[in-house]
Design a protein around this nucleic acid. Structure first.
Ligand SMILES: [Mn+2]
Ligand SMILES: [Mn+2]
Ligand SMILES: [Zn+2]
Ligand SMILES: [Zn+2]
Lengths: 153, 153
DNA sequence: TACTAAATAATAATAATTATAACTTAATAA
DNA sequence: TTATTAAGTTATAATTATTATTATTTAGTA
């Protein structure tokens, strides 16, 4: 954790952004809750535990900055809020998501499954792909099993 | 156009929703601007030309209903608004998009490029895919050509 | 330690979306 | 056709998410 924090500190300094305690606290929250997909408000409430004086606008500004630096991805699952998702160390692209329409769970696919598709897009559409957003909507393994049990009772 | 409108009328009636003039006007706008990706406000302004007395909330309700019926897809390109995208006739899935980060243009890919990926997701993650959202961010053909010209000058 | 651009807190403002309540109407069937 | 009524609409208010403003503070640097 300290390792990744250090890398992020360096990325900030490399672009001559200051490392404030507020920014550090925000990054710590994102690292601690890496699996989650927190909204700005979620992040704000968690950061407040470490740095109670922080303002919501500062959290928004920090998340915007981290997005600009590609440290986090700003994603949207169709509820009214933006969510902020830490990139895996060294990842070039946003990772994929599996959203269960039944229980609401969100699984992550770290492996990049789009290489072939991107080749087609480059070839057929002449589009130079820089990044992607891929989300599947459907029924997660758990919910399928639950359904099966209920049906066989 | 009248053909597709009729189909949509029938889909509404099949679920015992009424076809009001406001809904018809909204659907007509969506059909006329099929290539575009209109926000609720965009739709509202266009519908007002046909039905000046319509309210913005009615447009929101109508778009919500059409989304529920999978006649439109509610999509989000990361600017602050939801956009409403008519499904192609008979399409089971939301289609893909190419968003140019340079000029802001949005191209559509109607062909479904995710069949193979979905098979992997089903097999490896046990996830039952019902729909997907795929957007590529990058540089469109036009902007690439413009860049090349400038560089060679 | 002093300097200064950058960042923050504490608002206020804006923009998008949803809720409420009184009125209107599309579909249905007598 | 007309009466009925659940569903839908308008007008407006409220809520929620996000961004802007401004006076104050501070991180990085010399
Ligand atoms: Mn994720
Ligand atoms: Mn589209
Ligand atoms: Zn589930
Ligand atoms: Zn372009």
């Amino acid at each position: 954790m300290e390792h990744r924090l250090d890398r992020i500190k360096k990325e900030l300094h490399a672009k001559s952004y200051k490392l404030t305690p507020q920014r550090e606290a925000t990054v710590r929250v994102l690292l601690e809750r890496e699996e989650d997909h927190l909204s700005a408000e979620d992040v704000y409430l968690l950061v407040k535990e470490k740095a109670p004086e922080i303002g919501l606008a500062t959290v928004y500004r920090t998340l915007e900055l981290l997005t600009e630096l590609n440290i986090v991805d700003k994603i949207n699952f169709g509820d009214g809020v933006s969510r902020y998702d830490l990139r895996k160390e060294g990842a070039k692209h946003s990772h994929h998501h599996l959203v269960c329409t039944d229980c609401g769970s969100v699984e992550e696919i770290i492996e990049d499954l789009l290489d072939d598709v991107e080749k087609i897009v480059a070839k057929e559409w002449g589009f130079l792909v820089k990044d992607h957003r891929l989300t599947f909507h459907g029924i997660c393994k758990n919910c399928q099993e639950k359904d099966n049990e209920e049906r066989s009772e």
